[in-house]
Design a protein around this nucleic acid. Structure first.
Lengths: 251, 251
DNA sequence: GTAATAGTGTCTGTGAGACATTATGGC
DNA sequence: GCCATAATGTCTCACAGACACTATTAC
């Protein structure tokens, strides 16, 4: 570590400063891409083609670059590893326990992404496969021993945090729209909540809540019916981001 | 980057793997320690004794160590740089824009800490001074040009995020107790909300809300009065962490 | 017509907001 | 007695929850 001389200017200090003067570690960006598939909350995973954890499933991600913001790194990885277009991304948290990566101390900045269901993407480089798994398949509540698939690194914890963040944010934000392809019906928006929370919601009360929140959704016409039943009104997401008071989970 | 051979085992891979095989950057941990002082929300800052930003005010923090979790690094920095005891810490977010540190690309994991007011701590090594500043002094809403003090790095943004997180979490958690020295009165707990939100709350309704939330506070006796007025009942924090439904900000 | 889905009307209970009142202390 | 603060009582309004009902389509 450089010891600053009392009369040194900041420019002089920086000219003599080297990045090797402080400890250094690797930084990765991992993405928890959530969507609704088959009335279930699902997360995009890739099967690792290389060590470590070859053959295990992991969140898409990669090393952060020094010339990018972390958000830019996240969006680059998203574009590289998946053809998935998402409607919302936000930082979830940073995971830096020693031993989380057998290659050494690697800190991972996890990002949360929401998007409508758009099928399984093509696997990118270094990935043997890429597909969405429902969170029931991952057995997040249990110890993981009953799970159908094995997860790499501490990605089970990251996914658990991502799912809990998503469930909580549905309560007090309008982010459910990010899970819907535009345009969407109130019933489709309700399906988002029911899939994420795993509980049925009251149809009439849900509709009133959404429509009484200014800027939650904007009407854009009426759907053609596909089968019996009254045709549903169509909406797109509005400018509002928060719901006040929140829409609380039943129970 | 190592290219894995198809028949390589994970142990063989790790034996040949070097941390120099991937890009590397420095990771720091910064702390936004909030408290209530003089009926105002305040944040602990240190005046930097060395470059860069010598003489500017900054959040306490330092480099993360490879043998610690990020949370352990945060608590170590808290103990080193301040004698402050805090009642709650949580990760706030990670800031990694290129150019945020003139020494090079340094990623900072910011932590949020809450504690009761306990006076200004002694400055640690590398700090010329340490004291709490009210968030009004920092002029977070403005552009910073009117502020009485200059902040180092992107710490204005980190503090802005910390304050907004704290204000929001008071709504749906019982974290206000973390700002109070035990035991405390309902009025002192209300002072936390009024200081953080900058708005008066209705005395009777606030009391009912707190006491009707199971596990928010636990009665521990009655205070001696200091002056005229009925002596107040005393409480300590209860086991509850969340409030349902939340206590919403007026307006 | 029936079945199926979307949307509306209305009652009720809970709880926040506001105001008045009582309780308990110092002086 | 007066003043100051803490705690309680009570009314009202908004809204979530529940249920019944109407509307519009396919068949």
């Amino acid at each position: 570590m450089t010891t600053p001389a009392a009369d040194q200017t900041e420019d002089e200090f920086l000219a003599r400063y080297s990045l090797h003067d402080h400890p250094s570690m690797a930084v990765t960006v991992d993405l928890a891409c959530l969507t609704i598939r088959g009335e279930r909350l699902a997360v995009l995973l890739i099967e690792r083609g290389g060590h470590p954890f070859r053959g295990k499933w992991a969140l898409p991600g990669g090393f952060a670059r020094a010339d990018e913001t972390l958000s830019e790194s996240a969006h680059r990885e998203l574009a590289e590893e998946t053809a998935t277009s998402v409607a919302h991304t936000e930082q979830l948290g940073t995971y830096g326990d020693p031993g989380r990566d057998p290659r050494g101390h690697i800190v991972s900045v996890a990002y949360l992404a929401f998007g409508p269901d758009m099928g399984n993407p093509e696997p990118g480089d270094d990935a043997a496969a890429a597909r969405f798994w429902t969170i029931e398949d991952l057995d997040l509540d249990g110890d993981g021993n009953d799970a159908t698939i094995e997860l790499a690194f501490d990605h089970r914890r990251i996914i658990t945090d991502a799912v809990e963040r998503a469930r909580a944010k549905l309560e007090y934000t309008t982010l459910a729209c990010a899970f819907c392809a535009t345009p969407f019906t109130i019933a489709e928006l309700r399906d988002v909540y029911e899939a994420a929370w795993g509980t049925p919601l009251h149809q009439a009360n849900f509709r009133r809540k959404v429509l009484s929140t200014p800027g939650f959704v904007i009407p854009v016409g009426t759907a053609a019916t596909n089968g019996p039943g009254r045709p549903a009104e169509l909406f797109r997401r509005g400018p509002a981001t928060r719901m006040n008071p929140p829409l609380l989970r039943p129970g």
